[in-house]
């Protein structure tokens, strides 16, 4: 009875990462550090289609005071921001490179991300390349794999809770205004 039988709970998400990979590439502290920077996010593979996940993510962060840089071969503007064809064409410091491209393109994108000195690389849901993630980690970057950056922001910001989702945040301390 009581706490001796209590269950150690952990959230289940259908990630294909192993537990060891999750500990390194879905690390809670890493995620919070990335989100706390509130700087500039390069969205690689940002679509102009408002119904695409990449567009949801970019507009969400734009709304919250982040700068976004659309990285796509498509010339023009998305969400009012001029596009660039690749990461190497960016002329400003980047806090996080958020990847919405198929796994086969990820190694090239990560190489460029390391080269431009971004602080973090984020591979969105199911866009997984572990060797590239290892390389970014070895280069000193914060790395997250197979999570959605918008949902993680919602987890810590309270939005995900309002959608009935399990944030795994438990605290009796009063929230700060």
């Amino acid at each position: 009875m009581g706490s001796e039988q209590s269950i150690a709970c952990s959230i289940r998400l259908n990630s294909s990462l192993t537990d060891e990979q999750k500990a390194r590439f879905q690390n809670d502290e890493t995620i919070r550090r990335i989100l706390a920077r509130r700087g500039t996010i390069a969205v690689v593979g940002l679509s102009a289609d408002p119904q695409k996940a990449s567009h949801f993510v970019a507009s969400y962060f734009l709304e919250r005071g982040w700068k976004i840089v659309p990285v796509t071969p498509r010339a023009g503007t998305i969400l009012g921001v001029p596009t660039v064809p690749d990461l190497l064409s960016i002329r400003e410091p980047i806090d996080v490179v958020d990847i919405f491209r198929p796994p086969e393109e990820i190694p090239g994108i990560v190489d460029q991300a390391i080269k431009i000195g971004t602080k973090a690389v984020w591979m969105q849901l199911r866009l997984i390349d572990i060797p590239a993630a290892e390389k970014a980690l070895a280069a000193g970057l914060d790395v997250v794999v197979d999570r959605c950056i918008k949902m993680e922001h919602g987890r810590y910001g309270g939005g995900l809770h309002s959608a009935g989702m399990n944030t795994e945040i438990i605290s009796a301390r009063r929230r700060k205004l």
């Binding site: 952990s10 809670d28 502290e29 919070r32």
Partner: peptide, 10 residues
């Protein structure tokens, strides 16, 4: 704000 990385609560 504490979270699951610090402790899995019962």
């Amino acid at each position: 704000m504490s979270s699951s990385s610090e402790r899995s609560f019962g």
